[in-house]
């Protein structure tokens, strides 16, 4: 048995469950309450859980993300929602200098069981200050975990283990996925430690995450029609990366294309490629390729924005070129 629901509904259910099951959990962020959530993830929560636990904040990213860290230190299990990754830059100090460091800096005395959720990604013609994909930056930081749910199952299931995790977890939700619908099996279960093969194949491994997953799956479909069998690996967990699953897929397909909406230079894709070099170099029949965003602030006009981002056609072209 399974049932159909959207990514948004899945995320909403996950938060609802967490708020219902654990009195220490509360949701805090800009417009999470009266407005119902910027993306309607928390619609109805204010009436149900009250203003203490569905806490609207002023425009104060540094302040309320830091307050989330403090509340976690004080025994609560906060879910802090930052409208988008772009605005999280105003809170970067607290995330990188406090949340990520306290465990180590205190010699193991203090943990920060905090979940920070934020929207990421382009594709909605919101131009250069609302379209960043900076999850690769966060994945650089020891002391935090970074998740990128890209399926209905993960949208439904990743929050609970993130809240159970004793350390800070940052969840990136790609805006292009929110209206996506899919089947959620009754017996779903997810972890926050492994990458997953979303489509099995044998000729090339397409390794991706987040909003690029549907694009990679579409590309694999196109390639199948041409007789090319592509495997699609969803990283899911951007830190700590599941190197074994990446290496296993490369060992099976002997070719790999990494797809990442981050900019190419210094990207998460670069890190995945490096791990392939380190762990599966002798399995390769061709140099690893990548499809990333073009090195330009994401432009507003639709055709320019589309041209700047990874697209199924670009992925198909990269695979075709690799296979000669």
């Amino acid at each position: 048995m399974s049932r159909k629901l959207s990514y948004r509904e899945a995320m909403r259910e996950a938060m609802h469950e967490a708020l219902t099951n654990d009195p220490r959990v509360f949701l805090m962020g800009e417009d999470v309450g009266m407005y119902g959530g910027t993306y309607a993830f928390s619609k109805g929560f204010l009436a149900e859980f009250g203003p203490e636990r569905i806490r609207d904040t002023p425009l104060s990213e540094l302040g309320f993300v830091g307050a989330g860290i403090g509340a976690a230190l004080g025994g609560m299990r906060p879910i802090v929602e930052v409208m988008t990754v772009n605005f999280s830059l105003l809170a970067l100090d607290q995330i990188v200098n406090s949340a990520a460091t306290f465990r180590h800096m205190s010699g193991g005395q203090f943990s920060v069981p905090l979940v920070i959720r934020m929207t990421t990604g382009a594709g909605r013609q919101l131009a250069a200050q609302h379209s960043h994909s900076l999850e690769g930056w966060y994945a650089h930081i020891p002391g935090i975990k970074v998740l990128a749910p890209a399926t209905i199952e993960d949208a439904r299931g990743m929050l609970a283990p993130a809240l159970r995790d004793p350390d800070p977890v940052v969840i990136f939700e790609h805006a292009a996925l929110f209206n996506m619908e899919g089947e959620l099996p009754d017996d779903w279960s997810v972890d926050i430690s492994s990458a997953k093969v979303r489509r099995a194949g044998k000729d090339v491994a397409i390794i991706t995450h987040g909003g690029s997953l549907p694009k990679a799956l579409a590309a694999a479909e196109t390639l199948a029609a041409e007789g090319i069998s592509a495997e699609v690996v969803d990283l899911r967990v951007l830190r700590l990366l599941d190197t074994a699953t990446i290496a296993a897929s490369v060992a099976k397909c002997h070719r790999a294309v990494v797809v990442d909406e981050g900019w190419r230079t210094g990207s998460l894709a670069a890190e995945v490629m490096a791990r392939i070099m380190e762990n599966a170099f002798f399995e390769l029949d061709a140099p690893v390729a990548r499809v990333c965003s073009e090195e330009v602030p994401i432009p507003y006009a639709r055709h320019l924005e589309e041209a700047a981002l990874p697209q199924p056609e670009k992925i198909v072209a990269a695979v075709q070129e690799m296979l000669g």
Partner: peptide, 27 residues
Amino acid sequence: FDKATRLFGGNAIVGGGLPLAVGLGLA
């Protein structure tokens, strides 16, 4: 840092401790 006496650092980012205190107060 000292868990026993509830000393939450020792914070060396100027101003960095204040949001933490707000959160501890909230908790």
